[in-house]
């Protein structure tokens, strides 16, 4: 619980601020994740583009193998996102997994965190399966080609982004600390209040 604060009293008892409960959530984590998935889906890279990218310039046998891997990836995405979600959400999850694992050979802490942040708790076997699957998908492709492909798709979305505000601000993390006049042991104050005659 938050300790009693002056500004808490001012928020409650004066009429100079908007009355709101800071702990009240307009959006919970589930809603936030869904919104995040929606935003991710709008960032330019789609499942269709990945399917096309993985199949183009390959002979039939390799195309067949890639197709199988893509199916496996979709299945793993389904397990991660939850079977109750529609095809669109599952394909979006598959895109995310492809992007997350395209340059990884195992599921590390960062990848686990990123998947959980996007979809919530998930079966680790599905993450392992998608990591292995993506590794096999990108193996026949030239080094750097996958990254270039993702970068190209993403840059279409990011054209609007400016440089971050405040990057040159010299910010200090210093916090106010207790600055007592004296320690308890060092106090030589009289125990009783001093009555003074005038």
């Amino acid at each position: 619980m938050s300790p009693p604060r002056l500004t808490g009293a001012l928020r409650s008892f004066s009429n100079v601020s908007k009355r709101e409960d800071p702990t009240e959530q307009l959006y919970d984590l589930k809603a936030k994740r869904i919104k995040r998935q929606e935003l991710f889906a709008r960032e330019g890279l789609t499942w269709q583009k990945i399917v096309h990218f993985c199949s183009e310039h390959q002979d039939k046998a390799k195309q067949q193998a890639a197709s199988e891997e893509l199916k496996t990836l979709i299945q793993a995405a389904k397990e991660i996102v939850g079977a109750e979600h529609g095809q669109e959400a599952i394909e979006c999850a598959a895109v995310f997994l492809f992007e997350t694992f395209q340059n990884k050979d195992h599921v590390g802490t960062e990848e686990t965190r990123a998947i959980k942040q996007m979809f919530g708790p998930f079966p680790s076997s599905a993450a392992e399966a998608s990591c292995a699957c993506v590794a096999r998908l990108v193996a026949p492709l030239d080094d750097g080609k996958v990254e270039d492909f993702i970068k190209t798709q993403r840059s279409r979305y990011h054209y609007q982004r400016g440089s971050t505000f405040g990057r040159n601000v010299n910010f200090s993390y210093d916090l106010y600390k207790l600055d007592p006049l004296e320690d308890l042991q060092g106090s030589d104050l009289d125990d009783e209040r001093v009555d003074v005659d005038f």
Binding site: L6, T7, L10, R11, S14, V16, S17, K18, F171, S172, Y173, D174, L175, Y176
Partner: peptide, 16 residues
């Protein structure tokens, strides 16, 4: 608002 300004001072004022 005034409470926010006071909060900003006590949270960030030491070094900024």
């Amino acid at each position: 608002d005034i409470p926010k300004i006071l909060d900003l001072c006590v949270l960030f004022g030491k070094g900024n």
